[in-house]
Design a protein around this nucleic acid. Structure first.
Lengths: 336, 336
DNA sequence: ATAGACATTGTAAGCGCTTCCATTTATGAT
DNA sequence: ATCATAAATGGAAGCGCTTACAATGTCTAT
């Protein structure tokens, strides 16, 4: 079953069938109708591989993530696909599994499939791999690229604004001693969040006690351990901000283990607003980072760059927003 | 950059380059080495579209799911990809968004990309769409296909065994009045789970009180409401089994709202063991349904069928296993 | 030295589309 | 009626591979 058979049945040339499929305006409505009917009766599905090969356009956009089982990504993937579908494009997903070596495999897949653009939503990528895309003029869009390059689009997140909102919220609840559980310092975004926290304290004239800035790893276990250490201090903070939600969830577990209550004894704030966060007990107050917005901006940047052949990438900044749920409350009376 | 340039640089024909890429044994090691070096220096990536078109094999396997943001699926997707990679195959993911109409789009994508097989992990699919695959001899693998057909592989889940294990566990903890929150009756698997629950009670000579068999919807809100209704009974069950984890999580929220404690006042058991379940407070005891096993069996069935050209599909049964965490405990003293 | 068998490599015809260019047909101005 | 112009359609080359088949080279047995 191919375009030739359709052409035969519709009594037109293959060129006309192709034009009909692609919605060219150079086909009379009657001819188009005849072709469409032929396609229908033959149950013909145009071969994507042949189309891509013939046209030189794959209509495929790559999306490289760390790991689909990491709760941060599913919503991002879904949003990216939704917007791609709106533009009549398809999506190729690849995950690195946090392994720089696997990034090569991901890039290779993208290159072999001749994608029209790639969104890279995970940090580590070697310079020479970026070059592969550049030399082939394949548009790239990064999330949080620390060292932006000409021609590459970049989605920046205003982490500072998000952290500020969290700190302000806690201050408005009367908290004066606020702790922080940082993410891995190898991650640029984690470093920025930590710094933003320190700056926010300064801005509000709260004293910064470095023993209340603990180190986590953006996973639950790290959050659990860091919070345990925080609680070991006789005068521990009455509120703690975690660098991401998984950390916050781990931290909550540590609080419960000590027989303390959230938010009566201690308030917790996360970052990201993963789906899980609405279902913790109590529901987690967190700084929402809209994956939908990230996906939309990234896709549009890629699409526009590909279509216009632009040589310089776009740059966007996303504002996270505070989502107040049940894990934050007034500073407990009698505490400092 | 194409195979021709590689051939020129390596001073061989394109056929030899192709053979080298595909690991044919009809190439002298020295020649192969020369070709490989040429590929390396030219940074050549073979065009997947051309390969598929030329060979008639796409080496692509489709995976149709409901929605990647549904916590049941990410692990399934990951496992499916992992096993596919092991076999040197690629994966095309499509989601229906629970919309039968979107299923047509998914099928269309699969057909256009000429996939070598499709795993359908979501229920509703119209008969005529199945025919499209059958007539093209594209292997199919279903999860829980209620009406199995010749030529189609089927992964069955022994839901009854899972529910039995949950009931036995609760009985061993002393519970005598056990409630159940069912899933949507439109779902075959939900119907089976409910029936299995009723049978398990019978088998253990526990009296079945139909007012303790509530209706949920496999989402948190349904679980919440159903549990609220259950708790309205003055003599409510001391343990409740939910048809899936999302339901169980919603139910837990309802319990907390009444100021009751889990598992001291009431025990809760879920089904599926989604990632979230290990992080609820308390961690959810649940019946684990291994998505990894499902994915492996489905992929292997498809791959084998495609390779051998077999006309009859395989059938497998998966045994779920009880995962005991913290949401179940001894029947509260003084209760019936 | 020579024929036959076998291993390696090359030639070229597809695979199923898209699209440039040529051709045909319709339209309108003169 | 006639010709220029535009619109619709067709012919065919090409996209980058794979692979059947042909050609070449090597080696052994005679």
């Amino acid at each position: 079953m191919n375009i030739k058979e359709v052409a035969r049945l519709a009594k037109v040339s293959t060129a006309t069938v192709s034009r009909t499929i692609n919605g060219s305006d150079k086909v009379t409505p009657e001819t188009a109708e005849r072709v469409r009917k032929a396609i229908e009766t033959l149950k013909f599905y145009p071969n994507t591989n042949a189309r891509a090969l013939g046209s030189g356009r794959s209509s495929l956009y790559g999306l490289i993530i760390s790991d689909i089982t990491n709760p941060f990504f599913p919503e991002l993937v879904k949003s990216f696909e939704d917007i791609a579908v709106q533009y009549g494009q398809e999506v190729l997903i690849a995950n690195t599994n946090y392994d720089p070596h696997r990034m090569e495999v991901c890039v290779s897949r993208m290159l072999q499939r001749k994608v029209d653009g790639v969104a890279i939503m995970t940090s580590e990528i070697a310079e020479h791999l970026i070059d592969e895309f550049n030399s082939r003029k394949i548009p790239l869009a990064f999330l949080d690229n620390a060292t932006p390059q000409k021609g590459i689009s970049n989605i920046l997140v205003d982490y500072a604004a998000g952290i500020d909102a969290a700190v302000d919220h806690l201050i408005s609840l009367g908290h004066k001693t606020i702790g922080f559980i940082a993410g891995p310092m190898s991650l640029a975004s984690a470093r920025i969040r930590k710094r933003a926290f320190i700056n926010a304290l300064k801005r509000n004239n709260l004293k910064l006690d470095l023993q209340f800035v603990e180190q986590g790893n953006h996973r639950t276990d790290g959050g659990h351990e860091a919070m345990s250490r925080l609680l070991d201090h006789k005068a521990h903070p009455t509120a703690v901000i975690a660098s991401n939600d998984m950390t916050a969830i781990g931290a909550m577990g540590a609080v419960f283990e000590r027989g303390l209550h959230i938010p009566q004894d201690i308030s917790i704030v996360g970052f990201d607003d993963i789906e899980l966060s609405a279902f913790t007990q109590p529901a987690l107050t967190t700084v929402r980072l809209s994956r939908q917005e990230i996906a939309k901006l990234a896709f549009r940047a890629l699409y526009n760059t590909y279509q216009t052949g632009a040589t310089k990438g776009a740059e966007y900044t996303i504002q996270p927003t505070l989502v107040i749920r049940k894990s934050t409350g007034p500073k407990p009376a009698g505490k400092h």
